[in-house]
């Protein structure tokens, strides 16, 4: 077993090993030649207690699929998900029950992830009841506690989702994720649908909660500035694979993989005095159904040579804690 990218700051809470999630896509006449869409194609990383791991990449790179597999809303095709040492990748629904309270998820659009016909109170009590939290009175106490924790008021208990603003709805989504005292929360684009002034309120809330409750986050986002602000380590994904993973400051200051360089150079700095040094990539991300052979990035990489499409490069530790998947890494740095 090769060592996998992790931080040495403590024991792993969640260890993802060789995770693959392939979907079968119809192909040919009446689907006689089904093809595999490799949404997640061999991913290894670990998250330690109290850490925020950022997961960045463009649409279709598999970051949300990976998040859903970590929460086990989806079942991996292959690989292991070791949560505190237990592999939850293949557990059945009933076996999973006791892990459900430990791993939770927050979605991007709170309006579509909250039931419009349930009051906030009922929505927050539901998980408590399902997991036999206690009697009715203690459940209600807990809900009021949760509302306060996320910056809502007790009088919001009997209101419906449509009565709230976008930022408040996201607070409800966070309260629901926190209801059962989870250890790990997957945040899937939690602030992407919010305005700038509201976005900063939610980011602060997530950071405060982490300090207060010792939470670990897998923070999925396409917004590289938010990730830089929030996360301790960052993983960059491209077409189902992690191409680079490193501590945040290290990644942003010493970007090694050609894709990471292009991605970070395209981030717009809110300052007209900063002259953008953009690396413009040609074309768009190829289809994950027929990804390029060898290195997935080889078709758009400015440094690619013939052998890049001949074999798949491994994730290699270039500096302590800084892993890169590129076979030309020594030539191009």
């Amino acid at each position: 077993m090769p060592s996998i990218p992790s931080s040495d700051a403590g024991p792993a809470l969640m260890e993802v090993r060789g995770l693959r999630r392939h979907f079968s896509v119809d192909g040919g006449w009446f689907g006689q030649n089904p093809r595999a869409l490799k949404a997640v194609d061999g991913v290894d990383f670990s998250i330690i207690k109290g850490e925020s791991l950022g997961l960045v990449g463009e649409s279709g790179c598999g970051k949300s699929t990976l998040g859903r597999n970590v929460v086990r809303l989806d079942t991996p095709t292959e690989g292991a998900l070791l949560f505190e040492g237990t592999d939850i990748a293949t557990l059945s629904a009933s076996e999973l029950r006791r892990f459900r309270r430990e791993i939770q998820i927050i979605f991007q659009n709170p309006m579509s992830s909250l039931n419009p016909r349930m009051t906030v109170g009922n929505m927050l009590i539901e998980p408590l009841r399902l997991h036999s939290y206690g009697d009715r009175a203690s459940c209600q106490r807990r809900v009021h506690e949760l509302l306060e924790l996320v910056g809502l008021k007790s009088e919001h208990y009997n209101r419906y989702p449509h009565e709230f603003s976008g930022g408040q709805r996201q607070r409800i989504g966070i309260a629901r994720a926190l209801a059962l005292n989870p250890k790990l929360i997957v945040c899937d684009e939690p602030v992407s649908a919010l305005d700038v002034s509201i976005q900063s309120q939610i980011i602060n809330l997530l950071m405060d909660l982490q300090d207060e409750l010792g939470l670990s986050y897998l923070f999925i986002s396409h917004d590289l500035s938010v990730v830089e602000h929030m996360c301790d380590r960052v993983a960059v994904m491209y077409l189902g694979r992690i191409v680079e993973i490193a501590p945040t400051h290290e990644l942003y200051s010493r970007r090694l993989h050609p894709y990471t360089r292009a991605l970070l150079s395209a981030v717009l700095v809110p300052d007209p005095a900063v002259q953008a040094d953009e690396i413009i990539l040609e074309g768009g991300v190829p289809s994950p159904i027929d990804p390029p052979k060898g290195c997935h990035f080889s078709t758009r990489c400015p440094f690619a040579k013939d052998d890049c499409s001949a074999s798949t490069p491994e994730l290699v530790e270039q500096h302590p804690g800084h892993w890169v998947r590129c076979m030309r890494i020594d030539e191009i740095t």
């Binding site: 700038v196 002034s197 976005q199 900063s200 309120q201 980011i203 602060n204 950071m207 405060d208 500035s225 938010v226 830089e228 602000h229 929030m230 942003y252 700095v269 809110p270 300052d271």
Partner: peptide
């Protein structure tokens, strides 16, 4: 309010909010 490296001196810092 915009998260940006310019505002990040040292470890995690709270963002300005409106």
């Amino acid at each position: 309010s915009i998260p940006s490296a310019r505002h990040r001196s040292g470890p995690k810092k709270r963002l300005h909010t409106i």
